[in-house]
Computed example of a mutant assay.
Amino acid sequence: MKRARLRTDSANGAIVAAALEPDNTPEMETTVEGDTIETTLERERTGGLRSTVDDYVVNLSVAERIVRIANDHDTQHNDTA
């Protein structure tokens, strides 16, 4: 079994991890501690692991971007209220 562990400091770990959870497979395990997300991925072959890591990183990037935009919008909204 091939394994990769990804550790990411996040804009909001719990929200980002929850956004990624529907795409997780049984071979993926994610934990959140504060705003740090740690995901372990396992696959039988290196090529499959690489594909899964690539997909995960793209999804993570999108989720992080959305959380940052929402946080910026909330901050701007509260500044004008």
Rank of each mutant, 00 (worst) to 15 (best):
D23I: 00
P26D: 09
G47N: 12
L20E: 01
E38P: 01
P22N: 09
T46F: 14
E27V: 06
E29D: 13
E27Y: 13
T25N: 06
D23R: 06
R45M: 11
R43M: 08
T39N: 06
N24E: 09
E38N: 06
G34Y: 11
R45Y: 15
E44W: 15
T46A: 12
T25F: 11
G47I: 11
T30M: 13
E21N: 06
R45K: 15
E29F: 06
E33R: 14
T31L: 13
E44L: 14
N24W: 00
T36E: 13
A18H: 12
E29G: 00
T31Q: 14
T30H: 05
T40G: 04
T46N: 09
T39F: 04
I37A: 00
A19S: 10
L20Y: 04
P26G: 06
E29W: 09
A18E: 15
E33K: 14
T31A: 11
E44N: 13
P26I: 05
E29H: 11
E33W: 12
E33D: 15
A19Q: 09
R43C: 06
T25V: 08
E33P: 03
L20N: 03
T39Q: 07
G34S: 09
A19D: 06
D23P: 04
V32D: 04
L41I: 15
T30I: 11
T30D: 06
T36P: 01
P22W: 02
E27L: 13
A19V: 05
